[in-house]
Computed example of a mutant assay.
Amino acid sequence: MSSSQKKRARQQQGDVNKCVKYSIFFYNFVFWVIGTFLLAFGVWGLVSKQSATIDEITGLVVDPMWMFIALGSVIFIVSFSGCIGALRENTCLLNFFCLALGVIMILEITAVVLAFVYRDEVGDLIGDWIENAIYDYTEDPDINFLLDEMQTSLKCCGANHPDDWDNNVYFNCSSPAVMACGVPHSCCRPEEDGGVNNKQCGYGIRALPEVQWHNYIWIEGCVDLIHFWLLQNIIIITVVIGIILILQIISIFFVRNLVGDIQMIKALW
Rank of each mutant, 00 (worst) to 15 (best):
S4L: 14
K7C: 04
K7D: 13
R8V: 09
R8S: 15
R10G: 00
V16F: 04
S23G: 13
F25V: 00
F29W: 05
F31E: 01
L39T: 02
L39A: 02
W44F: 09
S48G: 09
K49M: 09
D55V: 08
T58M: 07
G59F: 04
V61Q: 15
V62G: 14
P64N: 11
M65E: 13
W66I: 12
S73T: 15
F76L: 15
S79K: 00
S81P: 08
E89P: 01
C92M: 13
A100Q: 03
V103F: 11
M105S: 14
T110W: 06
V112T: 09
V117W: 04
G123S: 02
D124N: 07
I126D: 02
I126L: 10
D128Q: 09
W129R: 03
I130L: 03
A133V: 02
T138R: 11
E139F: 03
L146M: 12
E149F: 05
M150Q: 11
S153N: 15
K155L: 13
A159W: 00
A159I: 02
D163A: 14
D163Y: 12
D164F: 05
N172L: 03
C173Q: 15
S175G: 11
A177G: 06
A180K: 00
C181L: 11
H185V: 14
E191I: 05
G195S: 14
K199W: 08
G202Q: 04
R206F: 05
P209W: 06
W213P: 11
N215Q: 12
Y216I: 10
W218D: 07
W218A: 06
H227P: 03
F228E: 13
F228N: 10
Q232E: 14
Q232P: 05
Q232V: 05
I236N: 08
G242C: 05
I243E: 07
V259F: 02
K266A: 12
L268R: 13
